[in-house]
Write a protein that binds this DNA or RNA. Structure first.
Lengths: 190, 190, 190, 190
DNA sequence: AATGAATGAGGTTTCATTCAT
DNA sequence: AATGAATGAAACCTCATTCAT
């Protein structure tokens, strides 16, 4: 039964991700249950509330970002130019976000309940990011006034840029936006 | 009677803007009617649907942006450095957006019905922007590969960055984000 | 439209009373709406919550009791023996309660939200009752230690006694119970 | 194994009683299972339905009343004044009821399914009561028209009087109510 | 025999929109 | 032209009961 419960848990998460992609924030609990092939009751056994469910997905997203940022930190420690490592991580994480439009849109409309679920993960991500920026600053390959808070801002910018409405003016244009932001992070006398 | 109708129209718009600021997307038609001091029926006489109402506000926002961009174009034509004029316009328009969080949030979660109302205005704004960028490119004060589509992306990024959730890491940080983006638009060998 | 709204208000109240009688506390809002011939939305426009609706009925019940107790007070002031007047009021009010089983049952299971609606009316009723008891005590026709709190207790007792489950042992037996309680209120050396 | 099952049975009953006291009729089967330290499945193995479980508690309550009434009968047969014995039994049983508010409240809102479980016990109790009243009537220490059905009515009255909502006007007031009812049962020329 | 995950009908309440007055 | 009462399709969530392990 443990195996069954685990399977259901996964199916629920997958179903939610799909529906968020298809129908956006209008996704309903009953739909999720149906798509996952479970009863609503089961859905609520796994996630006590709609916010808890959406929050879990947001958390998973940030866990994905964490992996990318951790890799950047590892590379920087191993001798690679920290700014290059950071740039790559931002591109990779933006690709994740682009492939995960549904959750990104949910995040845009997130309320504090949803965020609360992911907060610890977010904090860890910021901690990692902080270290990478520190290394880049020490190496002189980033603006002297770079600040960890710049990164969520850039990511939020890129994400909003991936929104279909904006993207229609420039498909895949988020890559440019990110490039512009990355270039803007370089030392001014580059 | 015409004056009365006009007054109601204005009051509805003002009420919606206020409520969007206060309660965000949870704003309801009944709330709007009450705040505007009219019946729901009257509200629906002025705006056939919720999307039409919110769309009108979005349109007004872009009309505000138009004013700023027109000024930039006028200045550039009068001899000012086009990139400087553009930068100023972006800052001014971002300030407008910051002062109008409610509508911005609605815009972020907008659906195509809402956008449709503002589409002509958006197109005009892009046309103006295009001309400014052309002048800047001719003057060599902007990246050679600058593209009109970069601007809505940057504005979307700044706006998402003004969202309270992101802003909490960096209040007024959107100014930095914008600065980074502007710096990223400069020619690489600046 | 005001007339229509009033009619609906009344129909809702009547429908609720009927259903409370038929199905007891299991009565549902949808049922009430259907029976009243209105949409659920209309039901909720008139009563913001289930408790508010049930509470209104409870309040009406106590208003009925008030009429009876006021009559007793008037009679006592006009020279009738206050204890006789009180007894009659208790009998009359118990008859009302018997004819209103549904609301009585709801009252038994009432929560504080429901009671809150009727509280002012209850307080007024107790005030009236207090005055009657005072007159009876002055006239020496009631136990010297009679207390206003005795009356709600007796009424609660009679009401629970009208419950079908208990009543099955003694239909109309509540009259006896009330008689016993009234006799118990007389001065001991009667 | 038999011992285990018995222990579970008891724990379930104790848990239900506690929860009925704490949360009243909002008590849920899951709550009961958790408090009892068993799974819901086990709970349902012991009691086929919620009504069966609550009914069992009601039955236990009446078994307690039986003990008191049996003692009264024994005393009356042994020569004590039957009315005095009856009064004492009523007081003792009311004290039991007061100490067991949860079950009493459930009883007040009971449906026929719940009652069915306790019916045989109730019948036995009434039989005992009948005999005591007969003795009292023979001794002339009770109203000539006393009837066994008077007793459940009085007990129902006292119980409803112990309800927190009513009791708030007169804490421990049920003792008075009972006293008034007992006095009302006395021969009129006492 | 025990467990607890799963079920899903059903409960209350909301809110964009319509329509009688 | 204005009003606001009415509508009813959902939305979220609960909980007694079943059933696979």
């Amino acid at each position: 039964m443990r195996a069954d419960a685990y399977r259901n848990h996964e199916r629920i998460l997958v179903a939610t991700r799909q529906l968020l992609e298809e129908k956006g924030f209008l996704t309903q609990m009953d739909d999720v249950a149906e798509r996952a092939g479970v009863g609503v009751g089961t859905l609520y056994r796994h996630f006590a509330t709609k916010d808890a469910l959406f929050g879990e997905l947001v958390k998973q997203t940030f866990e994905g970002f964490q992996v990318g940022m951790q890799a950047a930190l590892d590379q920087a420690r191993a001798g690679r130019d920290p700014f290059e490592a950071l740039s790559d991580a931002l591109v990779r994480n933006s690709e994740l976000a682009a492939a995960d439009r549904g959750v990104q849109d949910a995040l845009l409309a997130a309320n504090s309940q949803m965020i609360a679920v992911a907060q610890p993960t977010i904090d860890e991500l910021l901690e990692l990011t902080s270290e990478v920026i520190e290394l880049a600053r020490a190496a002189g390959s980033i603006r002297a006034d770079a600040h960890v808070g710049d990164i969520p801002m850039i990511m939020a910018g890129v994400s909003s840029t991936q929104n279909p409405l904006i993207a229609s003016y420039h498909p895949e244009g988020w890559r440019r936006h990110l490039q512009i932001a990355i270039d803007g992070l370089r030392p001014l006398n580059r």
